[in-house]
Computed example of a mutant assay.
Amino acid sequence: MTLRLGKVAFSVYADGTLLWRSTLVEGGDPAVPVHVDLTGRSTVRLVVEPHGVLDGVALADWAESRFTCG
């Protein structure tokens, strides 16, 4: 998250079902590793959800995310 501002939660949805949600991540926190089994899933959606009204201005993303099969 940029500028060390805001609090957000990161979520992974597959086929419309929530598979994983992080605890609240604050500006300046390190990246959170995620391991989700996507076997048999057709769609994946990576979401950033602001914690409060003012957290909507925080810039947070799934930068450098990777999918691996194995």
Rank of each mutant, 00 (worst) to 15 (best):
K7A: 10
V34Q: 07
L19C: 03
H51E: 15
M1L: 10
P50K: 14
A31I: 07
K7Y: 07
L59G: 01
G6C: 01
H35S: 09
E49G: 03
T2V: 09
G52K: 10
F67T: 02
G27R: 00
E26D: 14
S11T: 08
W20L: 12
R45C: 01
P30M: 06
G28V: 15
L3S: 13
S42C: 02
R66D: 01
Y13V: 05
Y13A: 02
L46C: 11
W62C: 07
D61W: 15
L46A: 11
M1F: 03
S65V: 14
G28N: 11
G40T: 03
V8R: 01
V44E: 04
W20N: 06
W20F: 12
G6T: 09
E26G: 15
M1R: 03
F10L: 13
L59M: 08
A31P: 05
D29M: 15
R21Q: 15
S11H: 12
T23L: 12
D61A: 15
P50C: 13
A14H: 07
T43Y: 04
V25K: 13
L46N: 07
V48A: 08
G56K: 10
P30S: 10
S42W: 02
G70E: 15
L38C: 02
S22R: 11
V47D: 10
D37A: 08
V25Y: 12
V47Q: 07
V57R: 04
Y13K: 03
R4G: 06
P50E: 14
P50H: 13
A9N: 08
S22M: 13
L59R: 05
V53F: 09
R21F: 13
L54D: 03
V47T: 15
G27K: 00
G56V: 13
V34N: 05
V32A: 05
G70F: 11
T39M: 05
T68R: 11
L3E: 15
V53G: 01
R45H: 02
G27A: 06
R4D: 12
V44Y: 00
L18P: 03
V57A: 06
D55L: 14
R41T: 11
K7F: 06
S11I: 04
A9L: 07
E49H: 04
P30G: 07
E64F: 03
H35V: 13
A9M: 09
H35Q: 09
V44S: 02
G6Y: 02
A31C: 05
P30Q: 12
T17H: 10
R41V: 10
V44H: 00
L19G: 01
D29S: 14
Y13F: 05
L46D: 11
G40A: 00
V47R: 06
T39I: 02
K7M: 13
A60S: 13
L54W: 02
S11E: 15
G56L: 04
C69D: 04
W62T: 14
L5W: 07
V8W: 00
K7D: 06
E26Q: 15
K7H: 08
A9H: 09
L46I: 13
D15V: 14
G28Q: 13
W20C: 01
D29E: 15
R45E: 11
S11W: 04
L59V: 08
A58L: 01
T39L: 10
R41Y: 02
V12G: 01
A60C: 12
L19K: 08
H35G: 03
T43S: 03
G40Q: 04
A58P: 02
V44F: 01
A63H: 09
